[in-house]
Design a protein around this nucleic acid. Sequence first.
DNA 1: CGACCGTTTGATCCTTTTCAATCGTCGTGG
DNA 2: CCACGACGATTGAAAAGGATCAAACGGTCG
Lengths: 255, 255
Amino acid sequence: MNATLAAAAPTPIRPYAIAAASMDAHTLATLLHLDPDPDPVLHQTAFATRHVREKETLIRAGDECRNLYVVRSGFFRSSYLDRSGSIQGLGFPMTGDTLGADGLATGRHTAEAVALDCSEVVVIPVARLTALSRSHAALATLFYRLISREIVRDQCSLFLLGSLGAEARVAAFLLDLSDRFCALGYSRTMFNLRMTRQDIGNYLGLKIETVSRILSGLAQQGLISVHHRAVEILDPAALRLAVEDAARRTAPRAG
Amino acid sequence: MNATLAAAAPTPIRPYAIAAASMDAHTLATLLHLDPDPDPVLHQTAFATRHVREKETLIRAGDECRNLYVVRSGFFRSSYLDRSGSIQGLGFPMTGDTLGADGLATGRHTAEAVALDCSEVVVIPVARLTALSRSHAALATLFYRLISREIVRDQCSLFLLGSLGAEARVAAFLLDLSDRFCALGYSRTMFNLRMTRQDIGNYLGLKIETVSRILSGLAQQGLISVHHRAVEILDPAALRLAVEDAARRTAPRAG
DNA sequence: CGACCGTTTGATCCTTTTCAATCGTCGTGG
DNA sequence: CCACGACGATTGAAAAGGATCAAACGGTCG
C-alpha cells in the first residue's frame, strides 16, 4: 500500500532542477507534440519561463490577456467563472498544454488557472504572438494549432458532459489522465490524482459524493483501485467499454 | 403571411440579392464584430464566398481541414461526432460566427457543420491564414481573435451543461438566441427556431421530451410563448432570473 | 493528542429519463 | 380537394439516476 503510493507519484521523477530561464521555439514545438518545423529560426526564438507555486493563481478571470502560457512542468486546474460566482471546471492542464487562449477573443480572460502543484510555464506575450506570426510562418502555424487544440479539448469535454452518465464520465476522466500521464513518460496504470474530489466534480458536472461513490463502485467491480488520491487502473479495456457502452446506450446517435 | 418569405420564395435567383462573390477583410472584420483596423490593406484583401444549401453538410467530421468559414448569412448546426457514432451538439452558428476552427489542431476536422437554412459563408483557406498572418499583422490579430472566440463559446456551453439544470439550460439557450438575433438586427423577442427539438436536446444534453416539457412549462409560467418553432419571449427578466437562480443554487460557487 | 479537512457511506428526495400513446402539421398521391 | 402517411412535437405514468442531507471515517498538521 505504502510502496504503491511512493511508486505512483509521477512528478518527483523529473525534478525541475534543470529548468532553464528560457526556452527556444523548437523545444516548445516538441513540448507541444507538434512536429517541429526544421526552420532554423525556431532555434533562435526564445521565450521566457516562469515558476508558479502550488495553489498560486496564474490567470485570474477578468484579467487583461497579456500572455499565453504553455505548461513546461507541473499541474493546473482551469475553471470558468460565471458572473454570478458559479464555477465550472474546464480541465487540468499539464505538461505540454496551453493556458490562456480564451483571452485573445476579447482581450480579457474568462477562465482562471490555478497551479495544483509547483509548476513552470513558458510565457508567450500576446504582442510577440502577432509579431512572430508576421516574421515566421512556421511560428504562426504553431500558434494556430496550439489555440485550435484548446477547441478540440473543450469539445471533447462537451461530449462528456452532454452525452455520458456519471459512471462513464468518471471512467473517461481516468482514461484521459492515464493517456496523458503515459504520453509524458509516466506510468499509464498507476498515478496520483493532484486534484480534490471537488475539483473532479466541478469538471465532470457531478457532486462530490457522486464522484466518490462511483470511484468506489469502479473499484468494487475490479476495474480500478483507489485509496485517497492514489489510483491504479486494473482493467483499462473494461473502463473503455464502460464509456463506449454508455455512449451507445444514452447518447443520441448519428444517422 | 410573411412578406419576406413571400418575396424570397418565387425568386429562383440568389435569395441574397446583394451577395457578392467575395468579401474584403475589412467587411469581414465588421461581420465578426471585431473593430476593423484602419489598415487599408484590409480593403484590398478579399475572400471568396460560397453558398450552402439547406441540409447540406459544409464540414464533415474526419475531413481534411482546408478552410475556415465565417457565416455571412444563414444558420448552421455544429456537432461533435464520437468514434462510436454518438453525437453531441456544439452550437448553432449564424451570421458572424466561425466554422471549422477545430480542424487547425490536427489538420482534420473533429466536428461537422450542417446548414439548417440556405446559407452563405466566407471561405478562408488555411494556406492563406498563415500567408496573410505573415504579411499583415492586423489580419493575424483578426484570425487569432476569431479562433479564440470559439474557445470562449465552448467554455460557456460547458458551464451550461455542467452547472445548470434542465430548465435553466433551456432558458439560457433561448436568451442566447434572443441576444444573437438582436445583434443581427432581428427582433429580440420574437423568432423562429431553425432547429428541431432533437437538435436542441443534443446541444443541451437533454432528451427531446424534456426539452418539450420545459418549453411548455416556461410557457405555462408566462415567461415565453411557443407554438411549434415560433417562440416569443414574454418575460426576459424572469428567464434571466431562472438561469441565475439555478446557477446560485445548484452550481458550485467560488471561494 | 486533538482538530481540521477531505473523503466515504447511507437513506431519502427530486430531477430527468424511459416507455408509451396521442396530437398536429406538412407533403404526397389519389 | 381531401385522405393518408410520415415526421416532429406534446403529454402522461413509471423507473432510474443523481442530488441532498446527515453522519462517520481517515489522514495530516499544529
